[in-house]
Design a protein around this nucleic acid. Structure first.
Lengths: 153, 153
DNA sequence: ATTGCTGCAAACTGTTTGCACTTGA
DNA sequence: TCAAGTGCAAACAGTTTGCAGCAAT
């Protein structure tokens, strides 16, 4: 089966997804590959790396290429539809902007990631603004340390 | 001139540097290469990358190898003599522990880096400890955003 | 029918590793 | 002396790019 034939089998139920519509509305093409990337981003219950998105997309469409994933993420990022964060594991991770912002406590021992509501860092934002005239972009921030279970000893 | 002859020309005035002494005291060998890495770390007025250290070391000793730089940094890190931080430019940066801890406001527009005293984030440390039983490791932390000059518009 | 997007392969950056040789202690 | 450290080259992971062909609009 050729790549194209394979793609035509994919269901297009994601046409009405917000990122997809946003793409089309902004004059970009809504290709099956882009839809699958968007779907992977939305379906994940955590921040996903390009590699993880690629792996998931390939389960549906084995001909997919990782450079397309990177290019799609780059585009979504430019359009403000996804945000990126470095959680210290050597690769950038992505998150749909519409899922809201939050922060992360990353345990350096067990790797556990605790999510923080956006509000947790608003006091910090105020301090930085008042004292340093610095407008912090606290969309996604990672704080490293030890979780409650790993502090013993 | 052979590498060895070249090395013997280097002055050993760094024998009494604290990192160097610490190394020797802990049973590690104090080689000229390690001294030069330590010197580059101490001499810099900012956080330096492995590549920058390598460049500086090579001005003194052209035979130096970057893998030695990485191995030395790895060792110093394990011994707690240097700390590392990711400032978002795609490479890890290093800082001697004895120079003290501080944080950074990184302007995403002009790249300016504003240093923050360690105390600036102690309130945050308290909040995370109280509310999430999370012991934050706030040795060096980077907060991204816009500096005062780049906020216009 | 265009122009934009994709797949492929190859380059690229930052970092790590295996191995034979060298050297600090 | 001899384990620890170095230099070299090659591998590695994550990411980017040039180009020819394909497809969304």
């Amino acid at each position: 089966m050729q790549p194209i034939a394979f793609l035509s089998l994919l269901c297009y139920t994601f046409n009405d997804m917000s990122c997809g519509q946003a793409l089309r509305g902004m004059g970009y093409r809504l290709t099956p590959q882009r839809m699958m990337v968007v779907e992977a981003l939305h379906g994940a219950d955590k921040h996903v790396s390009a590699e993880e998105i690629y792996t998931q997309v390939r389960t549906k469409y084995p001909y997919a290429n990782i450079s397309t994933v990177y290019r799609t993420l780059e585009l979504l990022k430019e359009l403000g539809l996804v945000t990126e964060i470095a959680l210290g594991d050597g690769c950038v991770r992505f998150h749909p902007a519409e899922k809201g912002h939050h922060h992360h406590l990353v345990c350096q021992k067990c790797g556990r990631i605790i999510d923080l509501p956006e509000s947790a860092l608003t006091p910090l934002e105020g301090v930085l603004s008042d004292m340093y005239q610095f407008k912090a972009d606290l969309k996604h921030m990672a704080v490293f340390g030890l979780c409650s279970q790993c502090q013993g000893g």
